[in-house]
Amino acid sequence: MQREKSIPFEVRGQRGLISVRVVPNDDPWASGHQLVVPDLNAEAFRGFPVCTASLRYHGRGINSIMGWIQVVVRGADVTVDRAPNLDGTDPFYAYGYLPTFFDAPANPDHPDGTWRADTFLVVVPDVIRSRTVVPIAGFTWGYELRAGRPTLLDVAGRSVADWGGHREVLETGHPAWSFG
């Protein structure tokens, strides 16, 4: 099972590399789950994925401002996964200077099935003046849940063309933005 992936990209005239790593959560206390689930049952959360994607990029300064947008597919349910403390009108999971992507979904109470995320590195071409998002590169990852126990899915690259399959959910949920 491939749980690490390097994905090259180019944006603003410079090359970069996304390094993705997905590992099973061996210690939900160490990963901080008790901060969001105060009555944490660590055993129920053990084995769910912990995903980190970091960037190496040859650009500097403002050229390095990018974001992450994640779309989660669970059966027929397709949603834009956003950081809950950010502005609800924005589609970003993270946005900033060489942003690191981190997610640790743990849903032991969900029914059996597949939880899959398509995660895209994106830019706003003019950084802050418009509400246009353009994908640069992406990857897919997730887990299969059976009887409350997860099995991690392989990490695989996603092409920019795969972004188009999510345009409707992005436009519906974030009508103030355009998705190139």
Rank of each mutant, 00 (worst) to 15 (best):
G88N: 15
I65K: 14
W163K: 09
V23T: 14
V122Y: 08
Q2P: 08
P28W: 09
A42D: 06
S130I: 07
D77M: 04
I62T: 11
G138E: 01
V127N: 09
G96H: 06
Y95M: 14
A42S: 09
P135T: 10
T52I: 13
Q14D: 09
R149G: 00
G67H: 01
P38S: 03
G61M: 10
P49D: 10
R21E: 12
L121S: 07
D27K: 11
V133M: 07
A42Y: 03
T79C: 00
D154H: 11
S159G: 15
N107Q: 14
G113N: 05
A83L: 07
V37T: 15
P99K: 10
G67M: 01
N25I: 08
Q2I: 13
V160F: 04
V72H: 00
F92D: 07
D112Y: 05
L170E: 07
D112H: 03
E43V: 05
L86A: 08
A176F: 04
L17M: 11
P49V: 05
S54G: 13
N85T: 13
R129D: 14
E144Q: 15
G180C: 06
M1L: 00
V22N: 03
T172H: 02
L153G: 01
G96T: 01
G138D: 00
E171C: 02
T114N: 05
